[in-house]
Design a protein around this nucleic acid. Structure first.
Lengths: 133, 133
DNA sequence: TCAAAAATGTTATGTTATTACATATCAATT
DNA sequence: AATTGATATGTAATAACATAACATTTTTGA
């Protein structure tokens, strides 16, 4: 039976990767995920990268470009409105995902000004979180 | 003799790498730079990465995190005020560097709101430039 | 000149990601 | 149930990006 939600049911490997990311306190690299899933039969990086590609496409997982690592989406569903920004603590590696509409709008206007057809935005803020000052 | 400018004189390898980036139409990967400088005696990636580290520190070069590539700063000097954003055309790979003060200010406020001590921002916008629509 | 610091050279290795190709699973139709 | 086509998975090899460790040279400044 098909889900009544907007997301398709996850396949076996997608589910395994997603669950690892959901349980993680911090972002994980693809190779960390691979190691965590060796017990489930994972043998090769591609098994992880293929699952990640789909999860990112579904908006369930985001890639942090400045860390080469991945996090589960902290919202119910980011498929429609991509997150505005990530704040990444360089001390504890915690990440918070921000959905700031006015930032998104600002970036959209900036692109319009330059006649740039905006497809995707990457905003990553590094520093110290309130617990690590 | 020391320079009267805020930047130190560039060392031999730094100058070679910087000049390659200045002349490039598009961002270059470290390994592309290495290949372009083999004729000047470069043999190993570290020669490039070490020069890039310094050039980035001086604000003369920026790393594009979403491309794993580097560009020469399009301003005279970004050492003091880091660039607000990069617009990257996925078709022609052209990059334009934007110094949008209100964006920087917006990001600063966002961090303040969360009691986050902001150190560095990465903003990269992907899409199609006006010439590639 | 001398010592400390910075820059460079070189080899090896570590880390991240993709190509290429084979096989399996699933869903829709005949 | 068999056929087909699309999607997902398995596996090996390799490409692409980046750093560790150590030796040597150059630069800087006391």
């Amino acid at each position: 039976m098909a889900s009544h939600h907007s997301q398709p049911e996850l396949k076996k490997n997608q589910k395994l990767v997603f669950d690892v990311l959901k349980d993680a306190a911090n972002p994980l690299s693809a190779y960390s995920i691979l190691d965590l899933l060796r017990g489930e039969g994972f043998r090769a990086p591609l098994q992880v990268y293929r699952a990640l590609d789909k999860l990112v496409e579904f908006g369930l997982v985001h890639k942090l470009e400045t860390l080469n690592a991945f996090v589960a989406c902290s919202h119910d569903d980011c498929a429609l409105s991509e997150p505005a920004a990530f704040m990444i603590c360089d001390a504890c590696e915690s990440v918070s995902e921000l959905g700031d509409a006015s930032l998104s709008s600002h970036l959209g206007k900036l692109a319009n000004t330059e006649n740039f057809a905006l497809k995707h935005t990457t905003v990553e803020l590094h520093g110290r979180c309130k617990n690590c000052l």
